[in-house]
Amino acid sequence: MHMAQFGDLRLHYDVTGPEDGMPVVFANSLGTDYRLWDKILPMLPADLRILRFDKRGHGLSDVPDGPYSMGALISDTEKLMDHTGFKDAIFVGLSIGGMIAQGLAAKRLDLVRAMVLSNTGAKIGTRDMWADRVAAVNEGGLASVVDPTMDRWFSKPFHADPEFPAWRNMFLRTPSMGWTGCAAAIAGTDFISSTSGLRLPTLAIAGSEDGSTPPDLVFETADLIPGAQKELIRGAGHLPCVEKPVEYAAILSAFLKAQGAG
């Protein structure tokens, strides 16, 4: 268990893999912690140096007063990568993690040489949509939005899976301030212009049943970047690394190997 201190903020992170391995950074979604990736890691190439972390307001990281800006989330990630010596890395981001990937690539190409945009967009939703959700959470906590969120996140069959309650509980145990703070960051972000200027190897992954970032949104974002690859995982929702880990790991491994992984 590792904590990095940046001013008043402490971020929880974990580094695994050989010291000389290919650096890969994973950034998770709103309402989850770094365990989001647990299922797929054993199925990836063995020569990876992997950094996972809990963004501010999530997991074991600090929960500063919100709202947060996307710039702050990107800066947190930048500082953590500098702190841990991760540079020239493959950045894998899901949902808000994919927005962080886009912003960081535009800011620090020395840190990001390729990226995986999973279930994300250059712009997600509208300010009014996020304002309504934030208001609901401020009034009734995350319990007030958990059921519609789970419907957007997971395919109907997965709701009967024994693992489903754990993901529901993870969402519910996210600090409300952390969730609303990051929701504000998403609401205020439009990376269409900056992402369209990116020129780096990119893989976009979408889930056919994703109600949060539908395939059209994910692939429209991918189309902003010349040469970006697009993969659709059928029968999966917003977190295909949870619902379809074998297929997700195979797609991700192929991309990592194309970037030089063993």
Rank of each mutant, 00 (worst) to 15 (best):
H2L: 14
M3Q: 12
A4W: 04
F6G: 08
L9D: 11
L11M: 05
H12Q: 13
H12K: 08
Y13W: 00
Y13Q: 08
V15H: 06
G17N: 08
P18G: 14
M22F: 03
V25N: 01
N28V: 05
L30F: 05
T32K: 01
D38A: 15
P42E: 12
P45D: 07
A46F: 00
A46G: 13
L48H: 05
I50R: 04
R52Y: 03
G59P: 08
L60S: 15
L60F: 15
S61H: 01
Y68Q: 12
Y68V: 10
G71N: 14
I74A: 11
D76A: 11
T77F: 01
E78P: 03
E78S: 10
K79P: 00
K79M: 15
L80R: 12
M81A: 12
H83F: 14
F86G: 06
K87W: 11
I90P: 10
V92T: 07
G93K: 03
L94P: 05
S95E: 13
S95K: 03
Q102S: 07
L104T: 02
A105R: 09
R108I: 07
R108F: 03
L109D: 12
D110N: 12
V112H: 04
R113C: 08
R113P: 08
V116A: 03
V116W: 00
N119M: 15
T120D: 07
A122D: 14
A122E: 09
K123W: 00
G125Y: 04
T126V: 13
T126K: 02
R127F: 04
D128I: 04
M129H: 12
W130G: 09
A131I: 05
A131Y: 10
A131R: 15
D132W: 07
R133E: 03
V134G: 01
V134I: 15
A135S: 09
A136D: 15
G140D: 07
G141W: 08
R152Q: 14
W153C: 14
H159M: 08
P162R: 12
P165H: 05
A166P: 01
W167T: 12
M170V: 15
R173N: 15
T174Q: 11
T174N: 13
P175W: 09
S176M: 11
M177D: 14
G178F: 03
W179N: 02
T180W: 06
C182I: 02
A184L: 05
A184D: 09
T189N: 04
F191V: 04
F191A: 13
I192V: 15
T195I: 04
S196N: 07
T202G: 09
T202K: 12
L203H: 09
A204M: 09
I205T: 05
G211L: 10
G211D: 10
S212K: 07
P215V: 04
T221A: 13
T221W: 01
D223V: 05
D223E: 14
L224P: 01
I225S: 06
P226E: 13
P226A: 13
Q229L: 15
K230P: 03
K230S: 12
E231S: 13
L232N: 02
G235V: 08
A236G: 07
L239Q: 04
P240G: 06
V242H: 07
E247D: 09
Y248C: 03
I251M: 07
L252N: 03
A254D: 15
L256N: 07
Q259K: 06
A261I: 11
G262E: 09
G262I: 12
